[in-house]
Amino acid sequence: MAEDKNEKKWYDYLLTIKKPLVYLGMFLVVIIPFLSRCKLKTYETDLVKKVFTRVEKIHEYNKEHPDSKRGILLGFDYGPSTTPENDPMLYAVLRHAFLRDIPVVAWAPYVAYLQLAEGRIKRIAKEYKAEYGKDYVFMGLAYPPTPYMISTGTDMRPMFNTDYYGNDVYKLPILDRFNNYDAFGLVVTISGTAMPEVWLRYANSLYNQDVAVATTAVNAAKFYAYAASGQFTGMIAGLKGAAEYEQMVTRLENKVIDEDIKEYLTGLYKNVDKDKYPEKYYEPEYTKSEINTAILRRRQAGRGMSSQFGAHVYVIILIIIGNVGYYFKRRDEKRRKTGKWGA
């Protein structure tokens, strides 16, 4: 009997899979889809479509009112730790805006986000020949964010004094018009934190500004309540949301540009006045590896979705294995106690 107790039953093996083995499995289910270059098309949901159509509406409006265009105010509210989820959202939203010639004003609320924001925004701007100071601007740090959001109710410029690059804010033409909520058709906050709630409190509640959110999946569940109440104009949630938006923008891009992306990027800066693009913001020419990265970036979220599928199924199986082991172990123990079996 004593020996019996020490002997490992089959369900004990199910309950005690070693950690390194669990981790190894995770590596495999994530890596294999990358190596096999699986492509998984994801279905599109209403909340993501809402963001897309809202941006399209701004485009329509701008076409009808070329003298009083509306822009997008972009809250770059994420840091390096959530780049895998937030980057593809940022790329897709910015591509959409630049593709539709919508002016973009961006800022970042924490010091750690600054360099990240600067590098990423200029990379996408370069793909659409957007001119710094005219088509887009990066204002730099808005910390603490509250006073900046409030001052945008009247004019954000006195709060900033200079943009990220140290230019005087009163000398940047884009800011002559795009300095307060009236000029922005939409705030898009791309976030790995609770910053979207701060945007709701100040931009939405106090100034009735439409706010769309692109968030990591961790915060998404909470934000569903705000999306259902109409406080958020649409929501892009997690890698899946990013993949949806990416799909929509790529469809639009194929329609608008109507040219192979590789050829489009190669010829982009061939016959342009390079003085319009100071090197400080980006170099107006493309290297081969830059083009390749730009193409890869166009389906960054979509590529991850097959790995995501693998990992989800993997963990569900693990939990089921654990529960099967647990169920039989408990049944066994109960029987032993009541003396029906095993004694």
Binding site: A217, G238, H312
Partner: peptide
């Protein structure tokens, strides 16, 4: 959703 987010980080 949380699980999805954590996995996405590794996928990234």
């Amino acid at each position: 959703y949380t699980f999805m987010a954590r996995i996405s980080l590794f996928i990234g």
